[in-house]
């Protein structure tokens, strides 16, 4: 491997000139990505730099699907800008997965509106993990965890905003403001899925300020405009843990 930036053949997606991004590396997972995966999910192999990875710039839905199709272990959008991939290594063929799982890391700007839960569940189905019968509940739980991580985590919009008078207008304005902030858009959403024959575990991690996990709602006023995401997850997942000061939601499901 000489470290040159050769690109694997992939279907053209997105506007012309933006399709630089695909490259896959082995032994070249960026140190900060490997360290984050190892620290949060106990991945010794990723920390050792042996994981196969797909590194992207400016991902969209088709690009993420194509990246999953390469069967790398780490799929990481380094930046929303197309010039941020650096020198990459395309020697990916035959790279073994580290374990039964995958790790997807996207910028908030990309994750918003990408329907990440659909993408992740499509990939779990493609890998034979999810049956159609199990999918609906798991997709809803994952969607709620990702929505919380984006909106309340990285975008730092309080969940009670919508319950104020005219709260929906304020919520929309805050969304536009935060999504217009380049530094906020670059905050990461990390999704890590791993499974055995019995169960599936998915972690969703944000880079927001976290929250007081003891204040999670046990029930919601039936007329409240917010606060049901955790109730859905509690009802449908086998287990839910919130760790890392509210920045990591760990969902466990029977298979």
């Amino acid at each position: 491997m000489d470290g040159s930036a050769a690109l694997p053949a992939l279907p053209a997606t997105g506007p012309a000139g933006v399709m630089r991004p695909f490259s896959v590396v082995r032994d070249r997972v960026p140190a900060d990505v490997a360290a984050r995966a190892a620290a949060r999910f106990g991945l010794s192999a990723a920390g050792g730099g042996t994981a196969a990875a797909v590194l992207l710039a400016r991902a969209d839905r088709d690009i993420v699907r194509s990246a999953f199709g390469l069967n790398g272990f780490l799929t990481v959008e380094l930046t929303e800008r197309e010039d941020g991939t650096g020198t990459l290594d395309a020697d990916w063929l035959g790279a073994p997965p580290v374990e039964q799982g995958f790790y997807l890391s996207l910028t908030t700007g990309t994750a918003y509106g990408l329907q990440c839960a659909v993408l992740v569940c499509d990939e779990l189905a493609r890998r034979g993990v999810l049956t159609p019968e199990r999918r609906g509940n798991i997709e809803l739980c994952l969607h709620e965890a990702i929505a919380n991580a984006i909106v309340h985590g990285n975008l730092e919009i309080p969940s009670a905003t919508k319950d104020q008078p005219d709260g929906y207008r304020l919520f929309s304005r805050l969304l536009r403001e935060r999504l217009g902030d380049g530094a906020v858009r670059q905050r990461r959403i990390d999704i890590f899925a791993r499974w055995t024959s019995e169960g599936l575990t998915i972690a969703v991690v944000d880079q927001g300020n976290g929250f007081d996990t003891t204040a999670l709602p046990q029930d919601t006023d039936s007329g409240a405009h917010s606060g049901r995401g955790f109730l859905f997850m509690r009802a449908l997942a086998r287990r839910i843990n919130v760790t890392d000061g509210g920045r990591c939601t760990l969902l466990q499901f029977d298979l």
Binding site: E144, A147, K162, A224, R228, G229, F232
Partner: peptide, 11 residues
């Protein structure tokens, strides 16, 4: 529909 969508119905 997600929990936010249900919130929209309630709004």
């Amino acid at each position: 529909i997600d929990s936010a969508g249900i919130g929209m119905l309630l709004i």
